[in-house]
Nucleic acid binder design. Sequence first.
DNA 1: GTTTAAAATTTCAAGCTTGAAATAATAAAG
DNA 2: CTTTATTATTTCAAGCTTGAAATTTTAAAC
Lengths: 155, 155
Amino acid sequence: MTDAMPDPLSKRRLKLWIRLLGVTRTAEAHLRDHLRVNHDTTLPRFDVMAALWRRREGVTMSELSRMLLVSNGNATAVVDRLEKDGLARRTPLPTDRRTVHVALTDEGLRAFEAQAEDHEAAVNRLFAALGEAEVEALTAILKSLRPGNTEKGAE
Amino acid sequence: MTDAMPDPLSKRRLKLWIRLLGVTRTAEAHLRDHLRVNHDTTLPRFDVMAALWRRREGVTMSELSRMLLVSNGNATAVVDRLEKDGLARRTPLPTDRRTVHVALTDEGLRAFEAQAEDHEAAVNRLFAALGEAEVEALTAILKSLRPGNTEKGAE
DNA sequence: GTTTAAAATTTCAAGCTTGAAATAATAAAG
DNA sequence: CTTTATTATTTCAAGCTTGAAATTTTAAAC
């Protein structure tokens, strides 16, 4: 009963995934609290506004949902609410009447910039334990995961 | 415009968080698809069943929500549905009538074990790019993040 | 013993999220 | 031109999730 075998790689990958999920959920909870208490907004709204801020010229709904890794219906719902609150605007695209451009309003732009500074500080506090080297190491490992480099190139 | 300054640590931590979120969301989407297609269930249901499987003797609702890092109301809702489907059972605790013990039914146990094997394989495919060394490195970094070792011990 | 505080759970409204189906517009094929 | 396929978006039902407000029960303080 002593002298236990170390977990096989398969089990360690599973535990790693559970740990990764734990870290992510904990961080999300903190950031959500922060946005709620200090800016009366939510993480999904913040994410959409961040995407619209990065692409100031406007994005289509499809681009938006691809950027955020959420479904189309989800993007529609969040943008609906932002629009109702005067923070975002839909503009029909004359060259293709299926498509709309979504962008922040001036008010949305101001609101986001106020939120973003605090948000970055909050992220920094959450990851304060990671120094230069650890940030680099973690980034490198996560990069190796990003594309679909599973099962492709196998045989 | 050339010779750009490298991002300050603060910005790199922010980018790291965004990347971490991307990896997690992508993995969750794959696992959700897998559970839906192959086992006609969802990730939240699977998570609850996994917690109940690990703690076969039964857990209280509060323990359950703490384990899964979700709100009490959320745990109630998911357990309600599992119970309605005959996969979980609530048992009142005679020594404290506020408390209930939740556990898997036999059917729930069988269902979970069928799902879990496939799920582990799916996780393994997702993280196949990570070898022993990378799994260890990533685990170590994530461990350093877990407790509230932010802002404590600062001064 | 009675009041007050604390703990465990549920309820509820609002918002988030998905996946599938419906709408509408453009592009491609014939 | 007209049918057919593709693309962009919205709608919808069902389920997920939160945070706050009940509810119920136990423990603590008088």
